[in-house]
């Protein structure tokens, strides 16, 4: 008994070696991992042209930001990205909810085959089919429109799969109770299934927003005017090395474009990570 007590108190006063190593390792890796962001933030605040020497005595300036803001219609790009992300998410929520509900709770001929086809789409990436999808979007007359960028992503196999799993885990008794009270199928979906799947919706929405806020290749292909171009495409045109823009200016533009998402993440990060952990996207 006495021995055990001393052992415990020893442990408290002397932090064990493994733990110190763990902490050190975790911190070093964390600092390495955010250093590109920190350096960029610092470079953005240096006077352009003179920058880059790791000389911390030089004065900080916001002139890069004012220059960048004036050089490109960022306001429009921001608006385009927000519209695009909202449009895609809205489409995905409606389509994936309905399809997920169908696959979770209805018996119909060919359901399992269809579901395998849906899973297969996880591997047929829209990114890979750029050549043909470009032709289709052009034929539909949707070239250079927000809908043209968004439409190929709306029937998301990932979303259907996630919501089907979520709906399947809802106890059938809840549904039966609601039906006895006279709920229609849509009522059951709205009042029983969707509330039960809330954490899944949250996780999916966050993933979808981050994905499409950041998407680049497809928007690059199907846009060609500042009226539809999202931030990523605008940033790539601005940052192209052959334009001869120097690194402080590029850093300022980069920091500016990622700031909204970064701030949203820092505010919601607990929910974000919790959503992932709880929804069990595994």
């Amino acid at each position: 008994m006495n021995n055990a007590m001393t052992a415990v108190s020893n442990k408290r006063t002397l932090p064990d070696f493994d733990k110190v190593l763990d902490t050190l390792g975790a911190w070093v890796l964390a600092i390495v991992w955010i250093s590109p962001l920190l350096f960029a933030a610092w470079a953005a605040l240096q006077p352009s042209g003179t920058a880059l020497g790791l000389d911390f005595s030089s004065p900080l300036t916001f002139e890069n930001f004012t220059y960048v803001w004036g050089a490109v219609p960022w306001g429009g790009y921001f608006a385009n990205t927000v519209i695009l992300v909202t449009l895609i998410l809205a489409g995905q929520l409606v389509l994936c909810t309905l399809a997920g509900f169908a696959f979770a709770r209805f018996e119909f001929k060919g359901r399992d085959t269809l579901f395998i086809l849906v899973l297969l789409q996880l591997f047929i990436l829209p990114e890979v089919l750029i050549v043909e999808n470009y032709a289709i979007i052009s034929k539909l007359g949707l070239f250079d429109t927000a809908l043209g960028i968004g439409l190929p992503y709306m029937a998301s196999a990932f979303g259907i799969f996630l919501l089907r799993q979520a709906f399947k885990s809802v106890p059938i008794e809840l549904e039966e109770a609601a039906r006895i009270e006279g709920c229609s199928w849509m009522g059951v979906l709205w009042k029983v299934y969707m509330p039960a799947a809330k954490p899944v919706y949250l996780a999916y929405a966050l993933v979808s927003i981050a994905t499409h806020w950041n998407n680049f290749l497809w928007p690059l292909i199907v846009t060609n005017s500042p009226d539809t171009r999202p931030l990523t495409v605008g940033l790539s045109l601005f940052g192209a090395p052959e334009t001869g823009v120097d690194i402080s200016v590029i850093s300022a533009a980069t920091i500016m474009t990622i700031a909204p998402l970064l701030m949203a993440f820092l505010i919601f990060q607990r929910q974000f990570i919790q959503a992932f952990l709880r929804a069990g996207i595994r």
Binding site: N214, T232, P241, A253, T257, F265
Partner: peptide, 29 residues
């Protein structure tokens, strides 16, 4: 470990950046 939530967000932050922005950051390196 101490400062665990800082460590977590440091690891996770690159994930939410556009690849284009990540490339710009690394250009600096």
């Amino acid at each position: 470990i101490p400062a665990r939530s800082f460590v977590r967000s440091a690891y996770f932050t690159p994930t939410i950046l556009p690849m284009i922005a990540a490339a710009n950051l690394w250009l600096f390196f």
